[in-house]
């Protein structure tokens, strides 16, 4: 089944490229840049969560590793940004390799908490090391060009989307991952190597996250353990993916846009009640799991495809609804 929604991709990209010419207000450009960043983070999260069936609660750790790598290379080793940024992605990938080696052997639930513990450990590491500046964080030279960061963020996220679309929706790799998600014993019986594939998916998820972290560090010019390595990055990515629709690439985009819009409005108008945001975040996760387990996009698409099959059914008995998956 080929998803037609990709045809919208090119026009949307063109509109986004033209956007800075229309929007002169740097505040809005900043908001949109961050929204694009969250789309990228949610997409990367979904590779492991939606397609492979492994929840990575340490997603924020890879974001932080990318941010800190870029910052340290630029500040301590005086590398140019163009070289330091890819290194952020590389190091995040290496981190995924090291972290995945023992943790990907665990069952899904244990993997989730193991990565959670990992993110805590990385946060503590950043707090005690000298090179990261400890709890004071790091300052980067400011480069005040909102258009530059807008296009950079857009380029990174668009490239990520294109790569993931090709790998997960068009090539056999996506099918293999889904096979592991549904039944890894069965996948093994078919000659797949689940550990290797899971590892590849983990790295595929970590590298874009690390690159986005690097862009974020240079863009915001200040990073500290609380903002880049805290729980909020993983938590929000999870909400976006679950709310939008796991196991699709459109779902996380929709979820990221809606949740980010809500977050921006909430912090703009209700900043006195910041703690409520945590409660709402948790409630949105819990409620969407109970009421829309397939997410917004999955539910919409499900309703649409069901309608189609019903129409086909009327034409003849040949079309048959496939049985639902899982238990």
């Amino acid at each position: 089944m080929k998803d037609k929604s990709i045809h919208w991709g090119l026009p949307i990209l063109l509109v986004l490229i033209a956007l800075p010419a229309v929007i002169q207000d740097t505040f809005f450009l900043r908001v949109i840049t961050e929204a694009i960043m969250w789309i990228g983070l949610a997409l990367a999260f979904d590779v492991l969560a939606g397609y492979t069936g492994y929840l990575n609660f340490g997603h924020g750790a890879f974001f932080g590793v990318g941010a800190y790598t870029t910052a340290i290379l630029m500040m301590q080793a005086h590398w140019p940004f163009a070289l330091a940024l890819p290194m952020g992605g590389v190091l995040a990938g290496v981190g995924a390799l090291i972290a995945g080696l023992p943790t990907l052997r665990l069952k899904g639930a244990y993997f989730a908490i193991a990565t959670w513990a990992l993110s805590r450990a990385v946060q503590q590491l950043a707090l005690i090391m000298d090179i990261t500046g400890g709890p004071d964080g790091m300052r980067l030279p400011s480069f005040l060009n909102p258009q530059f960061f807008y296009y950079l963020m857009l380029a990174v996220v668009a490239a990520t989307f294109a790569l993931l679309w090709y790998l997960l929706e068009c090539s056999p790799f996506g099918l293999k991952l889904k096979a592991i998600r549904e039944d890894d014993q069965g996948a093994m019986a078919l000659g797949l190597n689940p550990t290797k594939l899971k590892m590849q998916a983990f790295i595929l998820s970590a590298v874009p996250t690390g690159v986005l972290g690097g862009v974020y560090a240079y863009w915001i010019t200040f990073i500290d353990p609380a903002s880049t390595l805290g729980d909020l990055v993983s938590d929000q990515a999870l909400v976006m993916v679950v709310f939008g629709g796991m196991g699709t690439l459109i779902g996380p985009v929709i979820g990221a846009l809606l949740i980010f819009a809500f977050k921006t409005l909430f912090w703009a108008y209700l900043s006195d009640f910041q703690l409520l945001y945590l409660i709402i975040l948790g409630a949105v996760i819990a409620l969407s799991v109970v009421f829309i387990p397939n997410g917004l996009w999955g539910t919409l698409r499900g309703a649409r495809s069901q309608k189609k099959t019903e129409e086909k059914k009327d034409e003849g008995p040949a079309a048959k609804l496939s049985p639902s998956e899982g238990e």
Binding site: L238, L278, I279, L281, G282, A283, I285, A286, V289
Partner: peptide
Amino acid sequence: VFTFGLAIM
């Protein structure tokens, strides 16, 4: 995911 949501809440 559900229990994680509960924990955040």
